[in-house]
């Protein structure tokens, strides 16, 4: 069914968007990843203007993070104090991100910047995930890490000023650290419409030495606010949040995620992870091809309304 998007001002096949978001939701149900890093490029492939794709995806991110965080709250796996410090960084990051976005759009480089950032991100995550999942086929688990285990952090990080106590995580670290990690997440949310969980989570584990158990819930907690801020900023400053597109994305995402969660019981983690890694690599290759192969049309047109 064709529907006309009131903000994007274009007609789209609703089924296509729905299936896409359900598919990404399905993946996030299985793997617990946000999936924004797949939705935004797919929307752009479908011809939705990058600005609308990013702005609208940010609102979908709010919905999926809320769903995720409620589960973590119930189990008590959210460090609210840590999350709050992170989201101070996250909110300022989303502000800066919007200005970078606007500036790049003005320069006519936003498509290019979004592509390059995605290629970098997906190009790093894809191979890492592939390596890890293939490697773990051959490696037997030697020791099961305790859920409250933490990584030792480097002395440089320990020497940073403005130290704060985080009782829930049993940490005494500089507030600059969670603030800085949140900041990066905020910039990513504004420019790419993603939560950046796949960057925040490892950073929280390896740089901050946060207990693994608390990491997912805490990062989701702060992503809600960062994504909400990015949504509001995109809507107010660029008028690029399409509420109809958002509804289709959210509905598809919710349904897909439920199926994914049910499916997750029957799927062997490592096989599934290989598939996800290959999918990420596939998107990355496609973006690379678009960027490096001679385009069919070297000229593009922008109409200033």
């Amino acid at each position: 069914m064709q529907i006309y998007l009131p903000i994007a001002e274009m007609a789209i096949e609703m089924e296509t968007i729905f299936i896409l978001s359900a598919f990404v939701g399905f993946l996030s149900g299985i793997f617990g990843v946000g999936g924004g890093f797949l939705t935004t490029p797919f929307l752009i492939f479908l011809g939705i203007p990058p600005a609308v794709a990013v702005g609208t995806q940010a609102s979908q991110l709010v919905a999926s993070s809320v769903t995720g965080v409620l589960g973590h709250f119930k189990k008590g796996n959210v460090d609210v104090k840590m999350g709050t410090v992170m989201l101070v960084g996250g909110l300022s990051g989303s502000f800066i991100g919007i200005f970078i976005f606007k500036f790049l759009k003005y320069l006519g480089q936003i498509d290019f910047a979004v592509s390059v950032l995605y290629i970098l991100l997906l190009g790093i995550i894809g191979p890492m995930m592939l390596y890890e999942s293939i490697f773990s086929f051959f490696k037997k688990k030697k020791s099961v890490r305790g859920e409250f285990n933490t990584y030792k952090v480097s002395p440089f990080i320990q020497s940073l000023p403005y130290k704060m106590r985080f009782p829930r995580s049993k940490l005494y670290v500089s507030a600059l650290l969670p603030g800085g990690i949140g900041f990066v997440g905020g910039v990513l949310a504004s420019i790419l419409g993603i939560g950046g969980g796949f960057i925040l989570v490892p950073a929280m584990i390896y740089f901050m030495g946060m207990p693994i158990l608390l990491v997912a819930g805490t990062s989701l907690f702060q992503i809600i606010f960062t994504a909400a801020s990015a949504t509001i900023l995109h809507a107010v400053m660029n008028n690029t949040v399409d509420i109809i597109l958002a509804l289709v994305l959210i509905a598809g995402g919710v349904i897909g995620a439920q199926i994914g969660v049910m499916f997750a019981r029957f799927v062997k983690g490592n096989y599934a992870r290989v598939i996800l890694a290959l999918l990420i690599l596939g998107v990355c290759v496609r973006l690379c091809a678009d960027l490096f192969m001679e385009p069919d049309y070297k000229y593009s047109v922008v109409v200033d309304l």
């Binding site: 609102s59 979908q60 991110l61 709010v62 919905a63 999926s64 993070s65 809320v66 769903t67 409620l70 809600i224 909400a228 949504t231 509001i232 900023l233 995109h234 809507a235 107010v236 949040v241 509420i243 958002a246 509804l247 959210i250 509905a251 919710v254 995620a257 439920q258």
Partner: peptide
């Protein structure tokens, strides 16, 4: 913008 965010919060909670 707030409506969009509220809608997203609500559907996240509902889901």
């Amino acid at each position: 913008a707030l409506l969009c965010v509220f809608l997203a919060l609500f559907s996240g909670w509902l889901s």
